[in-house]
């Protein structure tokens, strides 16, 4: 008698039980949040205009983002101090900033730039190890910062849990009494595609998989936001921490949330695992949402 054709056997009973308990314990793991005040000793304001324009811009930034104190040193890097990207990098190396404030599309007046960061910012975000604060609009067509001081800071990411640096940077710009929105949007298009694949695997119950995986994807981020809120409260930070953890089209949701909440600053990560030469979410956000200042880490 020949062997029957191979069946889709359930996994070995013991292996299944081991996996089940490992999953339970992994699920019980929580990513802790450690608060620390991000040091910003020197801020470099990079423009493609004159020294006077750069100094005026520095004043605007200082007025809008009120968390900078007297200990912060402001350095301006006007357009006459560099001719190309390498020279700008050399200048910044000399300045040694903790934060660079600049605009999209430096020296691209003649190109009518659209949906791009411009070569200078593009390179800065990839090679520099300091955060870059992008001002609204572009260098050729700047948009003014709001007259009122920054009150609401929103962290936008698709993998919030464990990213202490991102939350600490956002907290650094949030004034006392302000609102810190921690936002995690899971890509519903990718999720639907995965569920469709699961739907073609007879061994997996599709409805159950959809429900449980969706629940877990959001639970991890949700627990992390709770940990952030608890830790910030313990650290006597006078913020209101709000949680937005949901499924959706990321760029569309971030755009909508930014508009609805009238946020004053978006904070995102350009150097995480998903950002290959900044071609991930951060790039898309920074070229699509140009009317809100953005802090790129």
């Amino acid at each position: 008698m020949s062997d029957p054709p191979p069946q889709h056997e359930p996994p070995d009973r013991r292996l299944g039980a081991i996996d089940e308990f490992e999953s339970m314990f992994k699920r019980a793991e929580r990513s802790p949040f450690h608060y620390h005040e991000l040091p910003i000793g020197t801020v470099a304001v990079v423009t493609d205009g004159s020294p006077e324009e750069a100094a005026a811009l520095a004043d605007q930034v200082r007025d809008h983002f009120t968390r900078f104190d007297d200990r912060t040193t402001w350095q301006t890097v006007p357009g006459d101090r560099y001719q190309n990207v390498n020279e700008l990098l050399d200048v910044l190396r000399d300045v040694g900033p903790d934060l660079v404030v600049t605009s999209r599309c430096l020296f691209e007046k003649s190109l009518v730039p659209q949906h791009t960061l411009g070569v200078y910012v593009d390179v800065l975000t990839q090679v520099a190890d300091f955060p870059v604060l992008l001002l609204p609009g572009t260098a050729p067509q700047p948009r003014p910062l709001k007259a009122e001081p920054c009150r609401e800071v929103m962290v936008v990411t698709d993998h919030l849990a464990g990213d202490d640096q991102l939350v600490n940077a956002a907290a650094r710009f949030c004034p006392p009494g302000g609102t810190l929105v921690l936002c995690h949007v899971e890509d519903d298009v990718a999720f639907r595609r995965h569920v469709e694949a699961i739907g073609r695997v007879p061994q997996i119950n599709t409805d159950q998989a959809r429900e449980l995986i969706a629940e877990q994807l959001l639970a991890v981020a949700s627990h992390y936001v709770d940990a952030c809120a608890a830790e910030l409260k313990r650290s006597d930070r006078d913020y209101t921490v709000e949680k937005v953890v949901e499924f959706g089209h990321r760029i569309v949701r971030y755009r909508t949330l930014a508009d609805e909440r009238k946020v004053d600053l978006l904070v995102t990560d350009t150097k995480d695992e998903d950002q290959l030469a900044m071609q991930g979410l951060a790039y898309a956000l920074s070229v699509e949402i140009t009317d809100v200042p953005q802090l790129l880490l």
């Binding site: 081991i18 490992e22 314990f25 793991e29």
Partner: peptide
Amino acid sequence: NVTAMIIIGSLTTVSLGK
């Protein structure tokens, strides 16, 4: 014995990993 090993063994891998 088996259930005990599965529970403690699973937790050991997760906690020592952490």
